[in-house]
């Protein structure tokens, strides 16, 4: 019974995906159908058009297998032997370095902004709860 329910929920998620793809085809927007489907499902959950219990099991199953779905497209690497040339190596190295750089600076910048946003909120909170301000 549980298995049937989970599969049915995967079916619901697939319907949302297909709806997203259909919307992209009709309107011609450049955003991919899966992202539109994600948005529609989120809105459906938010406006209680669908209950969390109706998708939870299916969503957790798909997310547990997320890595699997990337394997076939990654295997495509065998169709590009030119990646083994010098130009290919430079290309891959640039992508790796750029990714490392992006992770580091984004992580740091995000942490900095987050602390400021948190600080502002605390200050707002402090000024409403007490009139005493601290200067150092």
């Amino acid at each position: 019974m549980n298995i049937i329910r989970t599969i049915a929920q995967v079916g619901i998620l697939t319907l949302y995906y297909l709806l997203g793809v259909a919307i992209v085809e009709v309107t011609g927007i450049i955003i991919p159908g899966s992202i539109i489907g994600l948005l529609l499902l989120w809105l459906s959950l938010y406006f209680k058009l669908i209950k969390v219990q109706h998708v939870q099991k299916g969503a957790n199953l798909l997310l547990a297998f997320l890595t699997l779905f990337f394997i076939p497209s990654t295997v495509a690497i065998i169709n590009y032997p030119e990646l083994l040339t010098k130009a290919g190596a430079i290309l891959m190295l640039a992508v790796i370095l750029s990714t490392l750089f992006t992770i580091i600076v984004t992580g740091k910048v995000s942490q900095y902004i987050e602390k400021r946003e948190m600080g502002q909120e605390e200050r707002k909170h402090a000024s409403t709860t007490s009139s005493v301000s601290h200067h150092s």
């Binding site: 995967v10 998620l13 697939t14 949302y16 995906y17 997203g20 793809v21 159908g33 899966s34 992202i35 489907g37 994600l38 948005l39 499902l41 989120w42 959950l45 938010y46 969390v52 998708v55 939870q56 299916g58 969503a59 957790n60 798909l62 997310l63 297998f65 997320l66 699997l68 779905f69 990337f70 394997i71 076939p72 497209s73 295997v75």
Partner: peptide, 21 residues
Amino acid sequence: GQWISKMLGPAVVALAFPLYT
């Protein structure tokens, strides 16, 4: 393999779930 790749679409949709919770 294409059938496995096709599941990526519904899996991306499934990300709405943690985004909601």
